[in-house]
Each structure stands twice: as structure tokens, then as C-alpha cells.
């Protein structure tokens, strides 16, 4: 940035010889990261792409056979249906819940608001398995801290609670919301903080009420952050693995072990040992995620800022 302040011709004079001297140093600074990027980011994707065209039986070129195996598996459509339903429940929950709480905190400035922000952030520390354990405790009517609620609704076992597929979706959405709301709250709240004081002041002078301020002034300004939240969580949600996988362990025989696409991919790779099909499904997921990723970094203005 400061380079732009310098007169143009002087940078040009300096640039060429410096660039030649720089290349060695640049390599030293960026090289190791670049190698890691190739090994961990690029190579597995390329390897999966190659494997997806290799026959699981003979080892020769298989054409689109592996893709056909995956696409015609009845669990394939079902697993996308499951995560689709989950996203339909969970994303609105995230948008309404997180944006609502952020607006409340923003309106209640001062100590109380800051303290509340900290409390809402705490469940994020229980990521992954510990969050699951917490939910196992909640969902087991025999030991649950909300036992009275389960009793009132006539639930006596975790299997009973998860018996309906729609209940599974609600439980997963609640687990994801509880775990993820806090850090997204910080992001949205950060966005609200960037609304300039002058805008707030102007709206106030125009006689804006607190409610109108939130709905007509703040919300439109933070719309891009909300878009970022939706896209990032969309990409995350349809990749879900841990939660349905461990829920299936806890409620055996109730949940399909191939509830989500990633679980299906895991089954191919691990239990069936069909490398080709696992690779093909990975490639399908990768293509969708890459498209979402490009959408996120181009549409939310992430690249321009960099």
C-alpha cells in the first residue's frame, strides 16, 4: 500500500534488480508452504480424480463406471436428501438466531452486552466430540437435565426420540447451531460494529426507533456478512460427518450409517474397500465444494480486499 504512495518512476527503477535479488528469498519464505499446499491440498484431489477412473476390479481404465456405481446407489440420492433437509432447517436457524442475537448485543452496548457475547461464545469451546457428549446427555431421557420436558412429551429413550427421520434432522440442526452460533455471532457482531456512527446518528435524528434501526438501517448494511454466513455454512453442512456418524453409534440401528454423502464415501473407502467409488464420490463432493468456494471468495469481495 505504501508503495503506491511513492512516485511511479522511482519504483520502476528499483523494481527490476530488486526482483532478481528477491527471488531466492521469496522461495525461502514461501517454498515450504507451497510444498505443503501441493502435498495436502492439491495432490489428494488429483489422486482421487485419477483413482475415480480406475476399475476397482482389474485396475485398468474404467471410464465412468465408478461414477455410475455411486450415482445409481439408492443411498446416494437419499444422503443428499438428508443433508438438503438439514440445511433447510439449520441455515434459517443460524441466520435468524445469530443475526437476532447480534442485533440484541449491538443494541445493548456496555458491560451487559459484552458479558452476554462471552456467554454465547462459550459452547464453541465444546467442539466436536464433547459437544456430542453434551447432546447425548440431553437426549437420554433417563439422565437428561431436561428430563421434565421429555417426560412431558412422553419420550423414554434416545431411540424413541430419534425414531422419526425429521427428529434426526432437528437434533442435528440443534447440535450444529449450539456449536457454531458463538463464533458466527462474533463475525456478524464485528460487521455491525463497522456500521459507522454517522449513519446511526443520522437515522436517530430522523426519528428512527430501535426496532426500525435494526430492521431498516443495520440489517441492510450487514447483508454481505449474512451472505457469507449462509454460503460458508452451506459448504460445511453438506459435508457433515461427525454428528450423524456418532449419533448412529449411540442409537444403533435407528440411523443409517450412510446418512450423509461423506458417510457414504467413508463406507466405500473403509467398509466396502471400493477405492474407485470412494474416489468418484469424493470428486463429486469436491467439485460442488470448489464451486461454492469460488462463489464465496469472488462474490463476498474477499479477493478484492486481499
Amino acid at each position: 500500500m505504501a508503495a503506491a504512495v511513492q512516485p511511479k518512476n522511482s519504483t520502476r527503477l528499483l523494481k527490476r534488480p530488486r526482483r532478481a535479488r528477491q527471488s531466492g528469498h521469496t522461495l525461502l519464505l514461501v517454498g515450504p508452504y507451497f510444498i505443503a499446499l501441493l502435498l495436502v491440498g492439491a495432490l489428494p484431489a488429483v489422486y482421487a480424480l485419477i483413482q475415480s477412473f480406475i476399475s476397482p476390479l482389474g485396475g485398468g481404465f474404467a471410464g465412468l463406471l465408478n461414477y455410475q456405481t455411486v450415482l445409481t446407489n439408492f443411498r446416494f440420492i437419499a444422503s443428499f436428501g438428508n443433508v438438503g433437509l438439514l440445511l433447510l432447517v439449520w441455515l434459517p436457524m443460524m441466520v435468524v438466531g445469530v443475526v437476532g442475537l447480534a442485533l440484541l448485543i449491538d443494541a445493548a452496548r456496555g458491560r451487559f452486552g459484552k458479558f452476554m457475547l462471552f456467554i454465547y461464545y462459550l459452547p464453541g469451546a465444546l467442539a466436536g466430540m464433547t459437544n456430542f457428549m453434551l447432546w447425548l446427555l440431553i437426549l437420554d431421557p433417563n439422565v437428561s437435565p431436561i428430563r421434565f420436558l421429555w417426560n412431558a412429551t412422553g419420550q423414554t429413550s434416545i431411540d424413541g426420540i430419534l425414531a422419526s427421520p425429521m427428529h434426526v434432522v432437528w437434533v442435528l440442526a440443534a447440535m450444529l447451531f449450539y456449536q457454531g452460533a458463538g463464533s458466527w455471532l462474533l463475525i456478524i457482531y464485528g460487521g455491525l460494529n463497522s456500521v459507522s456512527d454517522e449513519v446511526i446518528e443520522a437515522a436517530r435524528i430522523d426519528g428512527c426507533s430501535a426496532w426500525q434501526m435494526a430492521w431498516r438501517v443495520k440489517l441492510p448494511i450487514i447483508a454481505p456478512w449474512i451472505g457469507y454466513l449462509v454460503l460458508m455454512n452451506f459448504a460445511y453442512g453438506f459435508q457433515i460427518f461427525l454428528e450423524p456418524q456418532v449419533l448412529a453409534t449411540a442409537a444403533q440401528g435407528i440411523l443409517s450409517p450412510q446418512w450423509s454423502p461423506n458417510q457414504l464415501s467413508y463406507t466405500y473407502a473403509y467398509e466396502v474397500g471400493n477405492t474407485g467409488a470412494a474416489a468418484a464420490l469424493s470428486v463429486i463432493l469436491l467439485v460442488i465444494t470448489l464451486a461454492l468456494g469460488v462463489l464465496i471468495i469472488t462474490k463476498t469481495g474477499m479477493l478484492e480486499r486481499s
Partner: peptide, 16 residues
């Protein structure tokens, strides 16, 4: 791009 992609998407390829 790799930052915004959930890391689960590369897990099975990494396993392979």
C-alpha cells in the same frame, strides 16, 4: 479457496 472449503471434503482423498 482452501480456507473456505471445509476440510472434510479432502479427508477421503487424503486417506487414499
Amino acid at each position: 479457496l482452501l480456507m473456505v472449503m471445509p476440510n472434510t471434503v479432502l479427508t477421503i482423498p487424503l486417506f487414499l
